[in-house]
Amino acid sequence: MILENTLDDRPEGSDGADQMGHLVTGELDLSHGVALYLEDITVSFDGFKALNNLNLAINAGELRCIIGPNGAGKTTMMDVITGKTRPDSGKAFFGQSIDLTRLTEPEIAHVGIGRKFQKPTIFEQHTVFENLELAMKTDKRVWKSLMAWLAGDERDRIAETLRLIRLDKEADRQAGLLSHGQKQWLEIGMLLMQEPKLLLLDEPVAGMTDDETMRTAELFVSLAGKHSLVVVEHDMAFVEKLGGLVTVLHEGSVLAEGDLATVQNDQRVIEVYLGR
């Protein structure tokens, strides 16, 4: 039921406030339809160019898959978007007005970018419920946390997310005791609690059963439209199930872009994957 709700009544990737014409600097502006815009991004580590003039544009509401061999720069790209790594050169914009290269990690989280790590990163000592509580979109300054007390509607939101990620029966369990697949789902749930506009998902189905993988694909497809999603994944069956455009990274820049079939038949992509 919730899955369906997220799909409907969204004007093309645009936020209500933007349609009102309010453009405060620092607020997400998706009026041109672009959610994420990377231009000529270069990152080098000790002379090795992890990213080399990378260009990428993700539309609002789009679901994009990024594939590429190991070391192609997929994780570094996510590091740049989330402020963990500063590019040596190039531009990174979120919407029209937010310059990601000037913001810190928490600030980037606040403007609406959520990130799922390759290895599920959750708070193992906390319960599943507390994990979602901590992730929930709210004022996250110290004083507010000291005085915080969950309101009824906030509890409802957590309960709703718990159902969505199918962990409602595990709410009071210590998160460290969950199965690997459940941890992945919990991390996705934490992302959703942040109400991000853009979700970055690094190998979200690694370690999941086939059944869990397919359910994750359904969840992501249902989230597209309301959110923009960038999914890094090796599992081609999963990528196929997601549909949408596929971008192939290689040696730090874009090698090919198109739907999965086109990309898979691209001679250069085949060479990269099979080796020369």
């Binding site: 989280a109 959520g114 990163t121 906390h126 996250k140």
Partner: peptide, 19 residues
């Protein structure tokens, strides 16, 4: 809870918006 979360997974805490 945020404090123990920082102890256990600081980067996750940052990426959900706490400084």
């Amino acid at each position: 809870r945020v404090l123990t979360a920082i102890r256990d997974a600081e980067s996750r805490v940052m990426f959900i918006g706490y400084n």
